[in-house]
Computed example of a mutant assay.
Amino acid sequence: MTEALDGPGWDGAWYRRGYFDDGSPLGSSASDECQIDSIVQSWAAISGVGRPDRIGPAVDAALGWLWNDGTGTMKLFTPPFEHTDKDPGYIKAYPPGVRENGGQYTHAACWMVYALGRMSRGADAHQLFDLLNPISHSETRGAADRYRVEPYVVAADVYAEGSKAGRGGWTWYTGSAGWLYRAAVEGILGIVPEGGNRLRIEPALPPDWRGFSATLRVAGRMRQIEVTLNGVTLDGKGPGTDGSFSLEGLDEAFR
């Protein structure tokens, strides 16, 4: 997998999404449509198998091409499929900029927040989280009128092209909501269960944050996390030699 990712999977400035049956690349600068895709850039970082010297530039490319403050969206890929004779599957049936066809597909946008957190880019992770936060789409009357859907639940998608850019799509979408929650708790706050009875706390906070506190209920017992500029503690104690915390009953807490 690693050899494939860093061999034919590398496009020169970012990672390719894949290949069509005829051997032509998908998510390549040589493509007429879908030149860069968000998912493969973020998962190259999250998976830990992308080359360190390539992950940063690839993620930067995705942010530069796909992040749009004007519409309040983080696109899945660009440009959308519209004229190509290639068949990428059902997403081509959507109009350009709608859902997976070059709109914001919120699952993928959440993965980018998570990736930025794991890359210790707390400022970027928090800024993108704010962009995705449904509350951010109702800070003004104009923004709310553009968004058109509930500003208190996560939308699975937000349109990103043409006159409908910035309009929310399928709301009350639990999959995207779950990933936005994980992006916040695991990606930015860095509270990550490792299985068994181990807990890793590796925050990626914005530089203007002084820290945070969090409470976990584990097997009926409350456990207190404190993160400050001086370090991380659990119930007043620091991590073990491997950087994680021993926490009996952790599986119960996250079941």
Score class of each variant (00 low, 15 high):
G142Y: 09
G122D: 02
L250K: 00
P239S: 14
R141P: 05
P203W: 10
T71Q: 02
S246I: 06
V149P: 00
T228Y: 04
Y105D: 04
A45W: 03
D242G: 10
R217H: 09
A61L: 11
R17S: 02
M1Y: 00
L128Y: 04
A13V: 09
E82L: 09
I135W: 15
D53M: 04
V232A: 03
R223T: 09
C110W: 02
R200Y: 10
T73K: 04
G169P: 02
R16F: 12
A30D: 15
Q224L: 15
V98P: 00
T73G: 04
K75I: 01
S28E: 04
A115H: 05
H83S: 15
M222Q: 15
G9E: 01
L131V: 13
Q35D: 06
P134S: 07
Y152N: 12
D21W: 12
L205D: 00
D53C: 06
V158L: 05
D11Q: 12
R16K: 14
S29M: 14
A144Q: 14
E194W: 05
G168Y: 07
S176R: 06
V158Y: 03
V98R: 08
T2I: 14
S244L: 05
A125R: 01
S28L: 12
M119T: 08
E252C: 06
K75Y: 02
L250A: 12
R146K: 13
G70D: 07
G23L: 14
L199Y: 10
V49W: 13
S31V: 04
